[in-house]
Amino acid sequence: MTTTDDYATYIASLPRVLAGAAALYRDAEGRVLLVEPNYREGWALPGGTIESDGGESPRTAARRESAEEIGIDVPLGRLLAVDWSIDAGRPPLVAYLYDGGVLTADQLASIRLQEEELLSWKLVEPAELTAHLLGGLGLRAQEACRVLESGEGTVELENGRRPSAS
């Protein structure tokens, strides 16, 4: 076997990790925009899976997914959080969460939902995020709101929580 074959075999043997990206959009009152998927329970942030075909980046995926899901296509702000999420029944997920900014009343009125995937949208207070977003997603979104409020840099998370120092 050649070195190239050995390397290909090695790469094929590595564990798989999913990657997703989303944007945290807010209104002038600080409420967070959530969308209601039709394919699972609970609410979500606009975003989705990073497409590996063509080498899509997390930032590009978050912007593309937002444009597809809610019809909002604006440059995204800084990376707020990166979350390593483990959930039974799927490979680990690395989730990137970007600042989508503050949407104007006109932008909110122009939201057009992707009918194939979404039922509705709403704005919720940051303190209510864990009541609407399942699992670590609610914690991730709350941590991102804290980052925005404090001016802190990007936060590293594990299942929505800050890991203890090792």
Rank of each mutant, 00 (worst) to 15 (best):
E115R: 15
L97M: 10
E117V: 02
P163Y: 07
V82W: 01
T4N: 08
T130V: 11
G77N: 05
G135V: 02
A22C: 14
H132D: 08
W43G: 00
L134W: 07
V94S: 11
L133F: 04
L97I: 10
Y39E: 10
D27F: 07
M1D: 10
G30M: 08
I86V: 14
G153Q: 11
V74H: 14
N38I: 14
R112S: 15
Y98G: 04
G47C: 05
E116P: 00
G30I: 09
T154A: 13
Y25C: 03
R140G: 01
L139K: 13
Y39I: 08
A19D: 05
V74G: 02
E152T: 13
L76W: 03
T104P: 07
A141S: 14
P46H: 03
D53Q: 11
E143C: 10
G153T: 11
E115A: 15
E125D: 14
K122F: 00
A12K: 11
L108A: 01
M1W: 05
D73N: 12
R112W: 00
A127N: 10
L34C: 03
S85C: 07
R112A: 15
I50K: 00
L97C: 12
S13E: 11
A21W: 02
L123W: 06
L76E: 01
L97V: 13
A141Y: 03
P126C: 08
A23E: 05
L103I: 08
A165Y: 11
Q114R: 13
R16S: 14
P46Q: 02
G135S: 15
L113R: 05
V94G: 01
L137I: 06
G89M: 04
R31T: 04
L34K: 01
A8F: 11
L123Q: 08
G30R: 07
A165S: 14
V74K: 15
P163K: 04
L137T: 06
A8Q: 14
D53K: 11
G30E: 07
D83E: 02
L137Q: 09
A67G: 14
L97H: 01
A12L: 09
A62Q: 07
G55S: 11
L76Q: 02
L76M: 06
D27H: 07
V94N: 10
A141N: 06
Q107M: 10
T3Y: 05
D83N: 15
E149F: 01
L14H: 04
H132W: 13
D106T: 13
A88C: 07
R16W: 06
D6I: 12
L79T: 06
P15N: 09
A62P: 08
I86R: 12
R59W: 06
R16E: 13
L133I: 03
G160R: 01
A141C: 08
I86W: 07
E156G: 05
G138N: 03
S13A: 13
E68V: 12
Y39P: 00
D83Q: 01
R26H: 04
R162V: 13
Y98W: 10
R26K: 09
G20Y: 02
A141P: 05
S110R: 12
G101R: 05
G30C: 11
V32S: 02
S166W: 12
I111W: 04
G77P: 03
T4Q: 11
A131D: 12
L129V: 09
L113W: 08
E117S: 09
D83P: 01
R64D: 09
L45M: 10
G89C: 05
Q114G: 00
R59E: 15
E56L: 05
G138W: 03
T4C: 01
P92T: 07
V17L: 11
P92M: 10
G55C: 10
Y25Q: 02
N38D: 12
